[in-house]
Amino acid sequence: MSLSATAATRAAHARNRFARRALALGPLLFFSLLASGLGLLVLRASRPTPANELAETVTADVLILTLLQIGTTLTIALPLALAAGYTLTGASRRGLSPWLTGVLHAGAALPSVAVISLALTYVFAGRTIEGSCCVFFDPVPATPLILALVNLPQLVVLSAMVFALTPPASRGTCEALGLSPWRTFRTVVLPAARARLVTAVLLALARTVGAALPVAFLGALWFGDGNPSLAFGLFGEMLRGAEGARHALWIVAITSFLTLLASVLRARWERKA
């Protein structure tokens, strides 16, 4: 009896060791993908070809505008997504959630080109570069608004998912103590979900930068004026025959910097929690 128990324990430990070694290949795969992507970009940017000579230098104005676009987009989208996540978490108790989540998933499947096409068709219809609308569109205020709309469904689903991950026991305790749903949300759910919300913001960040390209491109197509952000610069270079690797490297540098900053912030919040 005791011998067979020992053998079973040994087998379980052997399986554990094997799983640890096999699963460690995952982070290795991620590291090699990251390293090869960066390596290829650096190689392309440093290659002295006639195509690269066509490339424009990235100025401080372009970087500031790109950061401003990302910042404004997230500033608009995040509070709205939190409010909708709060509503959705409440709705799930009344049994409405599957349909609402379905609509939000459908919204998240909406490509950014379709959102900007709809905005141009309905909001900016009949306006030209001489119209007052152009001042509104180019470059700062309208692009983040459209990017926020693109990101909103995904951010709402992510916030609702993060709020749902908060242990129901802590929520139940607060409600049993007579706290209102809003106070429970503000004092218990939100602080507990703060570190996880960083992940939602980081995922929205990549989509914002990626979606900025078609938004800036179609906006320029409509109004005949370029939006001097990194994404637009990159697409312009690709169309001119330049490789655009320098612009892409700057994009990666910005997103990596913001990711590292967010990771530090999350680590602090996790320690506090």
Partner: peptide, 18 residues
Amino acid sequence: KCLIELLAAFPLLVWALL
């Protein structure tokens, strides 16, 4: 986690460029 998120922060556009 930071390693995974660094890869997640790569926009599709950058991979498409290659």
